[in-house]
Design a protein around this nucleic acid. Structure first.
Lengths: 205, 205, 205, 205
DNA sequence: GATGAATGAGTCTTCATTCAT
DNA sequence: GATGAATGAAGACTCATTCAT
């Protein structure tokens, strides 16, 4: 008897399957990292949770550092995207509204996988490519400097680099702190009002 | 065999010799931690650098966690001392001067072994007694709330807890950021002026 | 860091290769245990003798206790099998012949890897799952009680539980002692005659 | 001023003090051995429990083996004494009474620090001088052979060495088992009756 | 004699990584 | 591509023993 004709693909296209594997590994890595902390996270455990063999992990990530690095990059990318997507809209707002909007964006960016964010910020050793954990903060600084420069006229601060450093540090810390330690603040409009007040009153005469 | 982790110091030194040993171990631990990062810090390496045998390390610190914990406590104590010592003096100052003085104290506290501070804050997993890495920040918050409450009359902020949280987060972040990433700022009087401005303008009507 | 001891085998071998590894490890463990005694037996030495890496030992046995435990279980199983296999045949024999046959079975069971048996009985700390070293003796008692109960009519003893305890203790000790300290007795038919006499005369009027 | 005349010894005679120290160490060793088992017993812990410094332990016992060995010897001595003291009295008893008396003595000997006895028998590696853990059993065998020889006339057994081995093994096991696993048996007169019956019926025609 | 700080070989165990199937 | 058995360097920690005080 003639064998049945197979009309459905034996497997999904190679790229798709790979993509799914990579995603599963990264998701598992994030999960284990959050649950066990950085130095109790083992590649074997990640493979197990991902439901793939340890060999497959090394197929895509040549080292533990590469694996965590990918996670870091992905997380930075997500935060960056959350902010950048809206930044166009913010440009045209009056200063007070702009500051408030930016703070809101930054808080929202911090609210992306906050537990992962915390582990990444608090435990991942800043060595090699893992130094980029706070890449987002660095980029944020630049964005803010540019923004301030564009609105220089109305500002009381002169040294924009210093002002951006201070404002960015402050906002970043408030956002981080709120998300991590005081999540209930996030629903309180007073939080945003006050944070905005601090920055606005600082920047504007 | 694997007994439960013990995290309290094993015994108090009774001879002079052992005091020196304990100091050498802590100094070596700080040094290795700064140089190699938390998870490349091994107790064996610490012993080697301290010039004592690994047995001596465990004579005084029953686990790696206890060793790092001792360092954390010692560092917190140093920061606390640097701030508290001057706090009496600050109480009687007018608000603007008080804010400036407190910021200065906090910056100075952050300048105590900044490299160690950084490793402790960035890499030590907040588990068990190691959770206390940011003990200092917690205590600071309480101090600030009390201070604000005492000067309530002149403040524009109403929710003192929120204000303290925001101000403390901001100041802590500015101090931390300056010490770690922008040490040159520390010599620039503008840094202190601006930081003070941000907080004062936020707090006072 | 020192996690809780795990004492259950870590996984079942799925490939042929791993079956061979497990066997090699157990054989090596038995050999080292016999040669060096329990507390000079190290997992590293076992790995070395087995010709596998220490990692492979822990792949299959999550702790030293689990390794020795597996050996204990295997040994108990072998002794149990040696006795149980013949027990059906014994049931139909007249009492004297049955007692002789049972003693013979017990002696034979003790002659299975007697050196290992000795180390297991004499040195393995009866803690946790290792308490089962004398599991075989426990089961033996039950078997004997059942047997006596079935032949109650011809017995002079009344308290079968006591009689079983005494007879089992006696037989077990004679078998153990003969195998360990007087192996030459094993070939002497008088040994079996006498042991049988002691038990038969005790049990039967 | 002339110093007060001291009329009381500044300290007890050297031998006395040493004796007390040695006793404290041995008592502590027994206690730790029973509580923690052989391989969790450390010399440092023994010193601590004894209330002396580790140096003092090594003053009197040059090694851990020597320490445990002393305990073994002391225990053997105590068992031997308990039996030998009464043995003269037993010699003149008729056979049945003698067997009963000896069994009673052996049981009583096993009831001396039974927990220590158990650890010594079950966990101490029989190496070097520690081989003597069952020294008592060896000596007992000789005593029994001599006794049987003296009463040869009434015996049904011929090979006295074999008979002594079997009887001693049996009695020792019954005593050991009763003390360790069935302590309630010890108060039941039936236990002694039955054990005696087994041996007497075995020995005598 | 007594003390206890110090020692360091040796133990158990983990985990990133490799590679034959 | 995927698998998972195997590896072994390295790390945390113990404890018998020594010796300066």
């Amino acid at each position: 008897m003639a064998p049945k004709l197979r009309t459905v693909p034996r497997k999904r296209p190679v790229q798709d399957r790979s993509r799914a594997t990579v995603d599963a590994i990264l998701a598992a890595a994030a999960q284990v990292l959050v649950k066990d902390g950085f130095d109790r996270t083992s590649t074997n455990r990640v493979a197990e949770v991902a439901g793939v063999s340890i060999g497959s992990v090394y197929q895509y990530f040549p080292s533990k550092e590469a694996l965590v690095g990918a996670l870091v990059e992905r997380h930075n990318e997500a935060m960056r995207a959350a902010v950048l997507a809206e930044l166009q809209r913010v440009q045209v707002l009056p200063l007070e509204a702009a500051v408030r909007a930016v703070i809101e964006l930054i808080v929202r960016a911090h609210a992306i996988e906050p537990a992962l964010h915390r582990v990444l910020m608090e435990q991942v050793p800043r060595t090699g490519r893992l130094a980029r954990v706070d890449q987002f903060a660095v980029e944020l600084h630049a964005v803010i400097v540019r923004y301030l420069d564009a609105h220089r006229a109305r500002l009381r601060v002169q040294d924009l680099d210093l002002a951006a450093f201070l404002a960015a540090s402050a906002v970043e810390a408030m956002a981080h702190g709120a998300v991590i330690y005081q999540p209930h603040r996030l629903d309180d409009p007073a939080f945003l009002d006050e944070a905005t007040a601090m920055v606005v009153r600082y920047l504007i005469a």
